[in-house]
């Protein structure tokens, strides 16, 4: 899933400092699962902002709503009647949400309340870790199923750098060296040989380096693209 972290209250308060009536818009997708932008978090942000603004003697009128997904025009369209009732809209979805909203509703302003960070999953309750960098040409089967592009600080493809020490990455003492784990896993499986071959150059044009990407399923497309 896409993982995000909430911005500080100070940042969010500054965004809506001049607003009197706003909408806080959650999303039932990834940000609900990573506990940053679902109904609960929308309610907590609402109460926090109201407290802050009452304290300033400038009460803020806040409506809340949670869309099925903010990355689907079908659901974004649900706001068509109400979106202009507000001085501003805070989106708690990943960065995709406020963009779909901004594209559909040209005159309204949509503030991002979260910082979108990575594609990953929960390794324990309350902890999420990065697993994929969306490189566009997946090859994790060559690395024991562990992605060195997303999980090695240098995205190395032919083994660890000289900074790997006792399973820890030299870039961050809290991070495992994924190459240490890849090599150990392959050794335990008696498949270390698999890592010996020289891999061809990785084609980074399928990653962000090739510019914004688009996926097309022609069998689903109706009309022109």
């Amino acid at each position: 899933m896409i993982v995000a972290d909430r911005k500080s209250l100070e940042e969010i308060l500054a965004m809506v400092a001049d607003n009197k009536k706003i909408l806080i818009l959650g999303c039932k997708g990834c940000v609900t699962v990573c506990n940053v932008g679902g109904l609960k978090e929308v309610e907590i942000l609402t109460s926090s902002l109201k407290i802050a603004r009452k304290k300033l003697g400038k009460p803020l009128d806040i409506d809340i709503q949670v869309l099925e997904r903010q990355c689907d025009n079908e659901y974004v369209a649900e706001l068509s009647e109400s979106v202009n009732d507000y001085d501003g809209v805070i989106s708690m979805a990943c960065g995709v949400g406020p963009q779909f909203l901004s594209e559909m509703y040209k005159t309204q302003v949509f503030y991002p309340a979260v910082n979108t960070t990575f594609f990953g999953g929960a390794t324990q309750h309350g902890v999420w870790e990065e697993r994929c960098a969306g490189c566009g040409t997946c090859g994790i089967h060559m690395f024991g199923g562990l992605c060195p592009i997303a999980r090695c600080a240098k995205s190395l493809l032919h083994g660890p750098c000289g900074g790997s020490s006792e399973g820890i990455c030299e870039v961050n003492a809290d991070t495992e060296c994924i190459w240490d784990s890849i090599v150990k896993k392959k050794m335990e499986a008696g498949q270390l040989e698999d890592l010996m071959g020289v891999k061809g150059l990785k084609d980074w044009t399928t990653a962000r380096d090739g510019g914004p990407r688009r996926s097309i399923r022609e069998e689903l497309v109706q009309g022109k693209i």
Binding site: I51, K54, K55, L56, G57, K58
Partner: peptide, 8 residues
């Protein structure tokens, strides 16, 4: 301070 705001 919620009931006694520090009005700027």
């Amino acid at each position: 301070p919620v009931r006694t705001p520090t009005v700027q």
